[in-house]
Amino acid sequence: MKIVVTVKLVPDTNADKRIDPASKRLVRTGVETVLNPFDEYAIEAALQLKDKAGEGTTVTVVTMAPESGKEVVRKALAMGCDDAVLLSDDGLAGSDVWGTAYALAAAIKKSGFDLVVCGTQSTDAITGELPGALAEFLGVPGLTYVRKVELNGTTLAAERETDNGYLKVSCPLPALISVTKSIGEARYPSLKGIMGAKKKTIAPLTLADLALDAPVGSVGAKTEVLALAQPPAREKGKVVHVADGAEGARAIVDFLKEKKLI
């Protein structure tokens, strides 16, 4: 059984994120890069499946990122993944969801898979649209927002979150899922894991290795940024100190009335 986990490298949440007005892209230099926090749950889910399945099951991390992201990928290996594929190419810069999914699909097909596990969304883009597009390009059933997953032989059984509960779903492998944090807290790399990660392979891939039929990167983009604007900052509002509940409630009711909200 071969499990592939897709991870994205994102600027640290606390970093000062900027968009370059000229290229209209996220400035990724000079900011600390981390594993997309959502993808730690994806890694955790894959490792849980591996722990259960035992011998013969491997977890491969696949990421499309600049080569400088190598050290971040090592964290996934330190957590327990077996090896990694780092898809890096200047020609990939400026890829939108379509291009990213298209190129990643080719990389994943090349490495082979029974199950692909994605995070639900990335903290820098928050589109959450990559997993669906990736499933489509891989030509396999895809299920997002998975909170529980089991493999029974070559059948996948999963629970998908809904707004008011969940769905129980099953499908044959190969398949793709994206998982939520309900899957369980992500494990920390152990010291042994960190040491071991240094010996694990991070295989480089470039566009030349993939021989794609359609253009990706900025030339293949299907959308264009027309304008960027700074939203108006929210002003500091009124602050009222109240002596008791009645006074507090009154202050809020008056305010909501003034705003015509009640």
């Binding site: 009124k238 602050v239 009222v240 509940g245 009711v253």
Partner: peptide
Amino acid sequence: GEFADLLVVGDLFQIVPELTNHIKSGAH
């Protein structure tokens, strides 16, 4: 407090039930 339109400084356990009563009773 830096970006709320209104910050009421007080105990939530006192304020929220009172507020609910106000809204429910239509006192507003």
